[in-house]
Amino acid sequence: MTALYRFQGVRVQRGERLVLDLPALDLGADGITALVGPNGAGKSTLLEVLAFLLPHGTGDLRFAEMPVTPALRAAFGRRAGLVAQRPYLFDRTVRGNVMLGLGLRGLTTALAAARTDDTLARLGIAALAERHAGSLSGGEAQKVAIARTLALEPEVLLLDEPFSHLDAGAIDDLVALIASLPDLGTRAVLFSTHDSDLAARLTSTIVNLVDGCAGLGALPNFFDGRLDAGEHIFDTGRLRVHVPDHVQRGTRIAIDPAHVVLSQTRLESSMRNVFQGRVLSLAEHGGEVLVTVDIGPRLQALVTHDALAAQALRPGGGIWVSFKSNAVRVY
């Protein structure tokens, strides 16, 4: 599982402003990746760089292990497909929209028509084929825009805020569609969103973007598994985690690292999740220390420098890990 993109010392400026600062970042692993960050964090700019529509400024960017140069950008651009935020649909039918993109690549009409029908069918929107683009709902338009790009068979599909301006039903629909894309043959899917819950519904590979800097996902402790709603226990296979009583269903949990308590001895407290483990590593993260603990699977805890000094944490040392059931989010 290698990442398609490798950034090294990439800095992108818009005028005087530094919009992206990526000293070292690998992106585009197989499957789905979410880029999470507030508006203005540089998500759109990053996606344009990933789509090779924008030069990557200074620094080194590699795509499929080849350096991205101005001469190669057009060729690489055909391997990456970007669906813009609030995509523009051409003033023609849905079929016409998908056909147009294929026509730009020089496909014959017959070939383009076959590919169009196939793509619309795979995405479950064949019924929209003859509808005029102007008559579509927001969710339908988003799907058509995805079909239009997907028909070009990119290795990596980039979606800029695909869920913005959609109602809850359309969001559920689109989540299901995006989740199915890796199985439909798209090697890597990257999407941006300001909503970390939506990101978590689709993937555990999350990259946080704040002020143009990429960071570790805000919720790195992801575990897939099965919920026992009667016992209020989430079973990951290796861990049995107490979850809040009101949770009825879900297949993935995230444990907020800031709410994970580390101690040298077993704590007698109201915290229902208590595990014994071993410290694997310590790393500085945003002014605090990210402690990776092995409790069967790996779990990360975010502690202050003061707490670190008081606990005398060191790699290899034994440790107790505790967190309340309401520090667990279920998706």
């Binding site: 789509a51 529509l53 651009g77 055909r78 497909g81 970007l82 669906v83 813009a84 609030r86 995509p87 523009y88 051409f90 003033d91 147009l100 993109g101 730009l104 690549r105 239009r148 790009t149 070009l152």
Partner: peptide, 23 residues
């Protein structure tokens, strides 16, 4: 958004102009 969409779909300048005229 039209010009951006054309570029994202890989249209060259001539193709972009054709699409703009059609739109």
């Amino acid at each position: 958004r039209l010009a951006f969409t054309c570029r994202a779909l890989g249209a060259n300048r001539r193709q972009q102009a054709m699409i703009v005229v059609h739109e």
